[in-house]
Amino acid sequence: MPSLLILNGPNLNLLGTRQPEVYGRVTLADIENACRTKARNLGIGLDFLQSNHEGVLLDAIHAARGVHDGIILNAGAYTHTSVALMDAIASVALPVIELHLSNIHAREPFRHKSFIAPVALGQICGFGAAGYGLAIDALLEHLQGGA
């Protein structure tokens, strides 16, 4: 049974109340519940973690090796600043999908640069909370030899 890790970075704990015009009104707990339901229906394992601390995210990426088959990462603002996250992803040799609720390419210019993209399998952005389900499907397709 495949196992996935979904990591969420800084400020995602505030979903539902933080800039709802950008990020929507769905909470991170709502997203986690939907992902867990989808995982159960697909018969896959799933762990879910949110942290506002870069080091915690790094440790989770390192710990995923040998435990999970792939990672879905919404690194939030760390996407645009963290060489450390990029290096951790490259080091663990697990497929990673970069995920964003908003379309980072249609926002402020500083959000257009991603340090995650060069080491990610792909990027999903702009689909709000639905992006998590899309990322699960895409990662499973990859793991099963599809995409």
Rank of each mutant, 00 (worst) to 15 (best):
D59A: 15
V83A: 11
A63L: 13
P2Y: 12
E98R: 05
H68E: 13
H80F: 07
L58D: 01
L7S: 03
G9C: 08
N8I: 01
I104T: 15
P20N: 06
A129K: 11
Y23N: 09
S91K: 11
R40L: 14
Q144T: 11
T81P: 07
L140K: 02
V83M: 13
L28V: 09
G131W: 02
I71F: 00
H142W: 15
L15W: 03
L57D: 03
A84S: 15
F115K: 01
G76M: 03
P95F: 00
L121T: 01
V67Q: 15
I44N: 02
S102K: 06
A138K: 04
P95Y: 00
G45H: 07
R25E: 13
N74Q: 13
S102F: 04
Q50K: 02
V67Y: 12
E141N: 14
L99I: 04
I89E: 03
A75K: 03
L94N: 05
L58M: 10
D87C: 06
V119F: 09
G131Y: 04
P20F: 08
F48Y: 15
M1C: 08
L85I: 15
R107H: 10
E98D: 15
F115Q: 04
P95I: 00
A106Q: 14
Y78Q: 09
A135D: 03
L73I: 01
N8T: 05
A117F: 09
A34Q: 15
P118D: 12
H112C: 08
L28C: 06
K113M: 13
P118R: 06
A138R: 04
I124R: 01
A120F: 03
A34T: 14
G131T: 06
F127A: 13
I61S: 07
G146F: 13
S114Q: 06
R107Q: 10
C125K: 08
Q19Y: 11
N52H: 08
P95T: 00
L7K: 08
H100W: 07
G131C: 08
V67N: 14
P109H: 10
L7R: 05
V83H: 13
I89Y: 03
H62R: 14
E141D: 15
D69Y: 00
R111D: 09
L7E: 02
P109G: 08
Q144L: 09
L57V: 12
A147Q: 13
I72T: 05
M86I: 00
V22Q: 11
P109A: 12
L101A: 07
H100T: 04
S51K: 05
I71R: 07
I71T: 06
H112M: 07
V96L: 05
S114N: 05
F127S: 11
L7T: 04
A106D: 11
L12P: 04
Y132Q: 01
P20H: 05
N13K: 03
H105Q: 14
